Amino acid sequence: MTMMSLSSLSAHIPAQTSGDTSALTGVADWAVGLMETIGAPGAGLAIALENLFPPLPSEVVLPLAGFTASRGSFSLIEALIWTTLGSVFGAWALYGLGAWLGRRRMRAIAAKLPLIDLEDVDKVEAWFNRHGYKAVFFGRMIPIFRSLISIPAGIERMPVAKFLLLTSAGSLIWNSIFVFAGFYLGENWHIVEQYAGIFQKIVIVVVVLAVLYWVTTRLRKIRNRRS
Rank of each mutant, 00 (worst) to 15 (best):
I13F: 05
G19L: 11
S22C: 10
S22L: 07
L24Y: 08
V27A: 13
A31G: 15
L34Y: 04
L45C: 09
L49V: 06
S58K: 06
E59I: 08
V60P: 00
V61S: 05
F67S: 07
S70A: 15
S70F: 07
L76R: 03
L80G: 02
L80Q: 00
T84C: 02
T84Y: 00
L85A: 02
W92H: 03
L94P: 01
Y95R: 07
L97K: 02
A99T: 06
R104F: 00
R105T: 09
M106C: 13
R107G: 02
R107V: 04
V121R: 04
D122W: 01
A126Y: 05
N129K: 11
R130Q: 15
A135C: 13
F138V: 03
R146H: 07
I149K: 00
P152C: 13
G154R: 01
E156M: 15
T167P: 03
G170L: 04
L172H: 04
W174Q: 03
N175I: 00
V179H: 07
V179F: 05
F180E: 09
E187W: 08
W189F: 14
I191Q: 15
E193H: 15
A196Y: 07
G197S: 12
F199Y: 05
I202K: 00
V203W: 02
V206G: 00
A210N: 11
L212N: 02
Y213K: 12
R218E: 09
L219F: 11
R223F: 08
R223G: 09
R223E: 13
